[in-house]
Amino acid sequence: MQVGGRRLIFDGGTGLHVLGQSLLRQMPLQAYLFFTHSHWDHIQGFPFFTPAFIKGNKFDIYGAIAPDGSTIEQRLNDQMLHPNFPVPLQIMQASLSFHNVKPGEPIQIDDITIDTGHLNHPGEAVGYRVNWRGGAAVYITDTEHYANKLDENVLRLCHNADIVIYDSTYTEAEYHSPKAPKYGWGHSTWQEAVKVAKAANVKTLVIYHHDPSHNDEFLDNVGQEASEQFPGAIMAREGLVLHVPVSSSLSESYSVSQSSI
């Protein structure tokens, strides 16, 4: 997200490498990285984030303390230790400042307020809501919905948001499959995403965190069905850029983009 002259980056999967290559034309860089959790698909791009190896760049890195007590700094460090990686995190020459997130407590960066909340995911995860000059964009991944009620933490983060990017990994049929149900896997469905969007009065719902077994045709069909149930629903795709309107005579919007699906 590009907000008020600041660059906010959420999670560090393989798309972080792609983003890093594009940012090499804009150095020196200052950016803020927010990790929802440290499962492999959300951190494996960090060791390949080229700007972090270049002196003069500056990154503030945020993440919650894991149930085992480890910080986001420890977990990013551990994935770069032998025999998993040839060089340690300490070889990065950029200035790296690490911050522990307390879910439920806001983060302030200049006039940008970032609300946080617990998500229902194995090993825990954090949801983020970015507020700036009356605009709001929400990033909710990974989370599993509850059987008989909507998650109050999710509803709080999503309330009246302009954009909600929501974990819609499965269809209801896949989630409840009698042969291979997905209970306890830590992910939700696009149908639950629609329920959240309606209940929270969301303007644009982004169907996100696609199951790797879903091809483009499958996702196109999901996108069509979702938009029929909620006209503001769209399908996340690589390179998608969305603009959030804000109330200011100085700036008319901030942007939300995706480096990869």
Rank of each mutant, 00 (worst) to 15 (best):
E238K: 15
D211P: 02
T116L: 08
L89K: 09
M92W: 04
E172H: 09
V194L: 00
I61D: 04
L16Y: 08
N215Q: 07
F85I: 07
H42K: 12
N201R: 06
I112P: 14
P103D: 12
T14S: 15
N201E: 10
G13K: 01
M235F: 04
V241W: 06
E192Q: 09
I261C: 08
G223S: 08
V138Y: 02
D220H: 08
N160T: 05
H121Y: 14
D110S: 15
V246M: 15
S248V: 14
P51I: 06
A147P: 01
P181I: 05
F10Q: 04
A125L: 05
E124T: 12
Q2K: 00
G69E: 07
M27N: 05
P231N: 15
Q26P: 02
D216L: 07
N201T: 09
G123A: 04
F46G: 06
N148F: 00
F53E: 10
I163M: 02
Y208E: 04
E172N: 12
S259F: 07
T116N: 12
T141K: 07
T189I: 05
I207V: 02
G56E: 05
H99Y: 07
M1K: 05
N57S: 13
E152R: 13
Y170C: 09
S38E: 05
Y175R: 15
P67F: 00
Y254G: 10
Y254F: 15
A136P: 06
L205P: 06
L33M: 10
V256T: 14
H145T: 10
I43T: 09
F48S: 15
N160Y: 08
A66W: 02
A226F: 08
F85Y: 13
N221I: 11
D11S: 15
N84I: 02
N84D: 05
T14Y: 14
Y139H: 07
V241A: 12
G15Y: 08
V101D: 08
S260A: 11
K149D: 01
A173Y: 00
A64P: 01
F218G: 05
G184E: 10
T116Y: 13
P212F: 15
I61V: 09
D68S: 04
T169G: 00
A173T: 00
